[in-house]
Design a protein around this nucleic acid. Structure first.
Lengths: 113, 113
DNA sequence: TTGTTACTTAATTCTATGCTTAACCAAACT
DNA sequence: AGTTTGGTTAAGCATAGAATTAAGTAACAA
């Protein structure tokens, strides 16, 4: 059923487009139909739907159709995954800086003796 | 000096490529030269340098040349910015869920009376 | 049943991205 | 001085991405 296997390539690719980020922004306030999502944009409906498809296949958004309206919502676990990846790398770098700081402090300490 | 004005489009675009994420991963352990960065990859040096250029113009990485070797390092504030964007949207969604939960709990409460 | 709404599909166009090879430059050895 | 090392520049190519228009379907409403 789910073809939204979360994948960092697809997720970051999806987030790289301002239209798609605006759509996520909208969805962060609650679910929306395709035409609701499309309203703020000066582009054709098929274009919006293509953007939506990118978001869905990245796993960041899910959607289901009821009658003739398709409702979309954010997938917070997927967002979390992307967030985590960045955080992990950033944290690693900061920890390394800390160790470097310790080392320099120690060296300065040795100098003083 | 800095053409790395952090820009979400460019940052997420930069993060969307596995080669570039691997480069960031490498740099999260400490600075590296261009050829050090290139070593793990089965692609030409110019290709690696092009990836590096994407990272630099996104603001995620900086580099400077000393003699003939260019040293690269991660820019954690830029990473932070991307991380923040995701976190803000995800958090908004979760808060909305909480309010919805409260509402449903209240409604159930009313039912019981 | 006829029209309108809410999408969906398909074909096309144009630009951007990721890669390659070849040639070049300048610092550092020998 | 000559060579290797580390990186840069440029040109070209193939694939992927963002948009368009036109035509189609299926649900609901009058």
């Amino acid at each position: 059923m789910l073809n939204q296997t979360p994948n960092l390539d697809l997720m970051f690719q999806a987030l790289a487009d301002p239209t798609r980020r605006a759509m996520i922004d909208r969805l962060s306030h609650g679910p929306a139909s395709v035409s609701e999502l499309a309203k703020p944009f000066a582009m054709s409906l098929p274009a919006v739907v293509q953007h939506l498809a990118v978001l869905v296949s990245s796993g960041l958004v899910t959607s289901q159709k009821l009658g003739r309206v398709r409702t979309c919502q954010i997938q917070p676990e997927a967002l979390s995954l992307a967030e985590q990846w960045i955080n992990d790398r950033r944290t690693l770098w900061v920890k390394r800086l800390d160790r470097l700081g310790d080392f320099l402090a120690e060296t300065a300490d040795d100098e003083r003796r």
